[in-house]
Design a protein around this nucleic acid. Structure first.
Lengths: 348, 348
DNA sequence: ATTGGCACTCGATTCCGGTGAGTGCCAACG
DNA sequence: CGTTGGCACTCACCGGAATCGAGTGCCAAT
């Protein structure tokens, strides 16, 4: 078992090691922290911490370094979030003020978070699977092109060009639009996909002429809806990995690759489980299954009023990172984001 | 002056150094290349090359390494493009087949190029400033939201949500739509911006009621047009920089940052001047003004039929790269891309 | 439980001589 | 005059020995 003071020693080790990147010895601890006991005493505590595998010595006679398990205990029990400075708060607001559409807000959010923490920042798009379709719009572009637009009640708009060979006069177009409208408007995106599938499977015998085009258009809409279902990320600050390269034993290649692929990070962020405050952390080896065993990911939920769902904003960096500050930053940004999206939803 | 054989020696040095990453000595050259002369003779040639600053010795008694100037001569006079293998050609087609909209094609292009070369691939969006507006569409979303859609003859579609407080009945909406239509349709994007500006400056006294909303909408359209004018990039493969990290004396941080910012690379690609084949290379220190003095950028023009303009596809990597192969890859991909976009334009 | 003392470990640093790849130069050669 | 073999010289790159010192582990005393 680890004594109370032992835990304080662990906290000191984590803090100092994050500060200096150097293994910290018993002497350094009594110097930098007012424990009121001698180095020898600290050494005894350290021996216990080592038994518990919370710290480790890189080699026989050197200072100690927190293990991943040590970081975990630190984050769960020892770390109070370091409140943001006034300057940091105002930095967030200045990044986020003057909201535009969702893309815009999320892009600015991710920039704010990366500039605040110096880490790779990640914002998950809310999943739109539960959003409801409010509009389906068709616009002929000429040359057999048809622009298909789908709008949901979450304010997300997305379009795609379908290639139908024929031109339609206005009334025909209106009919197709109306049909798609009754099929989809007011329905969740998820349902829409099924309804389109069964509509395609049961063609309308009475309207052979335009049936082919209708199906092409319906397929385009379906592709678009599928797009809504996919989760996406916005990220920023990947260059920061190069600065903290020394913290990665191996190359930063897998990290950069994961960032580019997105899918790994998407899964990882999805699987993390948040505490009662909506905060989650996945530390070092815990990320091994994702090939990111030398990195930590912090995340915080944010609410998306319109989408009746939550998504996450997070941050990726070396295991040796400043958890109190970064956790606070992630939480603060998530809260700001929730608020901005609320205003967006109600205001105007 | 450097003799004919001297240039062949330079070629050998570049090739071997790119292969092995090790300074190449006179002995190694006579071993690996059939020059039919002795090492001493090669040494004399090397002394000349060094006088011309085409090669340099890392330290007094070691093999030689090409200087940036040496790479330049190699690329301009010595490098024949290495034709792509059948496998590579089919890899490109398989990446690019089944085209979708422009975004889609460019994304796949950039993936093809990065997987082909193992470098960072870059595709410049064609500049849409000269494209003509073909449609302006307005869709009411409810809650005072108005969706504004702009379509150009290049097939690019882009939308934005404007916040007008009021709702409009269909005839009013049609009037606003018609007004914007006459203002913009058939005009180049560039002109459209000016016309909107003067329209806003001269409000319509007869229709005070809807004038405010019209201006809000016009502004949204203008923002959207502005967006069209901005050049953009798609990139892929930035993780590859981590693999060739050894080729960068300093950190890869500035590289990654430039990739994330895009604007530096945009400027650089814009300023490169292409030869008669549409190929361009900017090597090592030539990129110093952009903070990328340890990297090289290769680029090739491609045609965008609809946009009546050209744009570039390119590639970023360490100065020590395989120029013949990479140049060939860039050129091949640019040609494929031109062809695909032509088919897109005519076919369907 | 805490502390001072002490022997011990082991990475890091420095120094040193040997090795070898590679050069520069020169005199000789066709 | 271009080419060549020979040769002295340079210097990065080991590998090993010596030294240093931060930091530990253990123990006996308090």
């Amino acid at each position: 078992m680890v004594s109370e003071r032992g835990l304080q020693v662990l906290r000191a080790i984590v803090q100092d090691y994050v500060d200096t990147r150097e293994p910290v010895g018993s002497k350094a601890i009594v110097d930098r922290h007012a424990f009121g006991v001698s180095a020898a005493t600290i050494r005894n505590d350290m021996a216990q911490l080592e038994d518990e595998e919370l710290i480790a010595a890189p080699h026989t006679s050197s200072g100690r370094v927190p293990t991943d398990k040590g970081y975990r205990v630190f984050v769960d029990h020892l770390a109070e979030l370091r409140p943001l400075s006034a300057a940091q708060r105002s930095a967030i607001s200045s990044f986020l003020e003057g909201s535009g559409d969702l893309d815009d807000v999320l892009t600015r959010t991710v920039r704010a978070l990366t500039s605040l923490t110096g880490q790779v920042a990640i914002v998950q798009y809310p999943s739109f699977a539960r959003a409801r379709v409010t509009h389906v719009e068709l616009v002929q572009l000429g040359g057999g092109r048809m622009l298909v637009i789908v709008v949901t009640d979450t304010g997300r708009v997305s379009q795609r060009v379908a290639y139908v060979r024929d031109e339609f006069d206005d009334s025909e177009l209106a009919r197709i639009r109306a049909e798609l409208g009754t099929l989809l408007v007011g329905r969740p995106v998820r349902d829409g996909l099924e309804r389109i599938a069964s509509r395609i499977a049961a063609p309308d015998e009475h309207a052979i002429a335009r049936e082919k085009a209708t199906i092409v258009i319906a397929k385009a809409v379906a592709e678009e809806l599928e797009h809504f279902r996919q989760d996406r990320l916005v990220m920023a600050g990947s260059a920061n990995l190069a600065r903290s390269e020394a913290d990665f034993r191996g190359s930063i290649y897998p990290l950069l690759e994961a960032i580019e692929e997105q899918v790994t990070i998407l899964r990882l962020m999805g699987e993390m489980v948040a505490d009662d405050q909506g905060l989650a952390a996945s530390i070092g080896r815990e990320n091994e299954p994702f090939g990111l065993g030398e990195a930590s990911v912090l995340a915080s939920d944010y609410d998306v009023t319109g989408a009746r769902t939550r998504a996450r904003v997070g941050l990726l960096g070396p295991t040796r990172m400043d958890y109190p500050t970064n956790l606070a930053a992630v939480r603060a940004v998530a809260r700001y984001l929730t608020r901005i999206l609320e205003e967006d939803e109600s205001g105007r």
